[in-house]
């Protein structure tokens, strides 16, 4: 059963407040340019504090501290927007599903993926460091 929208709202806003486009349907995911051209970061957001609590601040830090950034940033919310999440995972079917997780696309290809188990128990700074390395390499 999905969590209350009221509980999830601030977790959505942690990303939308820093410029993330929230994709809430499969059609919106299909139309998202970040997976088709240039560079795009797609965050699979999640409620779970065991990992997501550091994922969102990690993303924010990475974007604040990077000179090179993805041209498009978007998010889907696992367990909430199920159609959108399934469509997002369909963009990289070779990767086992996990949330939170982050997919970085370049020119329509998956260039980098940060799965949940690489976020769990780490600090926001550590998560940001991984993302900044990916941005520096691919942006």
């Amino acid at each position: 059963m999905p969590y209350s929208p009221l509980l999830v709202k601030p977790m959505r806003e942690e990303l939308t407040a820093i410029g993330f486009e929230e994709l809430m349907t499969g059609e919106e995911v299909g139309n998202w340019p970040g997976a088709k051209e240039g560079t795009g970061l797609l965050v699979i957001n999640s409620v779970c504090g065991c990992a997501a609590g550091m994922a969102r601040p990690g993303v924010r830090l990475a974007l604040e501290e990077s000179d090179k950034k993805p041209a498009h940033v978007a998010t889907v919310f696992a367990g909430q927007d199920q159609e959108a999440t399934a469509a997002a995972r369909g963009l990289f079917p070779q990767v086992p599903p996990s949330s939170p997780s982050m997919a970085f696309f370049k020119d329509g290809e998956l260039a980098y993926f940060l799965p949940r188990h690489r976020i769990e128990g780490r600090s926001a700074e550590d998560v940001a460091a991984d993302l900044k390395s990916a941005f520096a390499e691919h942006c």
Binding site: L7, P10, E14, S46, V47, G49, C50, A52, G53
Partner: peptide, 8 residues
């Protein structure tokens, strides 16, 4: 912020 679980 997120949800956390105690007693585990």
């Amino acid at each position: 912020m997120g949800t956390f679980h105690t007693g585990k």
